[in-house]
Design a protein around this nucleic acid. Structure first.
Lengths: 147, 147
DNA sequence: ATAATTAAGGACAAATTTATCCTTAATTAT
DNA sequence: ATAATTAAGGATAAATTTGTCCTTAATTAT
């Protein structure tokens, strides 16, 4: 569905929301280990989420790392997707037709549209905080390892 | 959602279903022009759909080209997706977690699952024929050009 | 039979995505 | 102030996807 970069962005952000606070920041090493992603590549992604999109924060130096403010945690998942350039995906015709639209639909359009709207609704109503809380409540996971 | 290769596969197959019969085969030139796709790349894809998956047929030589049998036209859209290796996509966790499952779900799992099931249902019930007929009936399009 | 036409298939090229490594800058603790 | 720690950022590499081109094989029309 999404690129690997976006998958890492989602996992990392959720992890930071769950564990990182201003006085307990999390390093890229811990993050990439926890979410099973390549550290340097993940770092790049987090840099962008910070600099361009203000979805997370970071500070350098000892005890530095990443964290999120209350406000940031309340952003919808969609904000991450948007930041990662996945807006096009959520907009796009299944058949890849540039010109597909309500007035000139492709043969999948009407049925696909209904499903896509649910997807968008989901990404817009679920906040990062919600997902982090679910993990804290213990019913749900974000790591990729067996145990 | 899907790769470009899959988009071309879907469009080309629908176009062949709509226009190609055993005694009126369609050449790769006409196909790629109609669906706005790179001819050689599209040819590769159609070769595979023919050889490995028997979703379309072709014959070389003058008046050669691609066509589909009745039976082939009745295949669900899902058959094309499967042929193009998109099964994993329809199965995969939104967050890209290898281990995400009913018993060890990611925080998006339960809601995402419901939507994905609708998507699969759609691809399994819609046949290639259905889509081709919709175009013939004139309400719906598959070309990418303005007029 | 020969020539013409069209798909099959192989080799290769370009573009994009994913990933690594190294140096620099910022921040903190001593 | 100095040393240690950690993210920022640039350069580059590897892998994958997308795309092209050319030769070969199959088929048909003459």
């Amino acid at each position: 569905m999404f690129s690997k970069a976006t998958e890492y962005a989602l996992r990392a952000t959720i992890f930071i929301a769950q564990k990182g606070t201003e006085d307990n920041k999390i390093g890229i090493g811990e993050i990439s280990k926890a979410i099973d992603s390549p550290p340097s590549f993940t770092a790049k992604i987090l840099q962008a989420l910070r600099k361009n999109n203000k979805i997370i924060r970071s500070v350098s130096g000892p005890n530095g790392g990443f964290y999120m403010t209350e406000k940031m945690r309340k952003l919808p998942v969609r904000a991450i997707l948007e930041a990662m350039g996945e807006n096009e995906m959520l907009d796009k015709c299944v058949l890849g037709l540039e010109k597909c639209s309500e007035t000139k639909p492709c043969p999948m359009h009407s049925k696909y549209k209904i499903i896509k709207e649910q997807l968008i609704e989901l990404f817009e109503t679920k906040t990062i905080q919600h997902l982090a809380d679910d993990i804290k409540n213990g019913a749900v996971f974000i790591n990729n390892k067996s145990k």
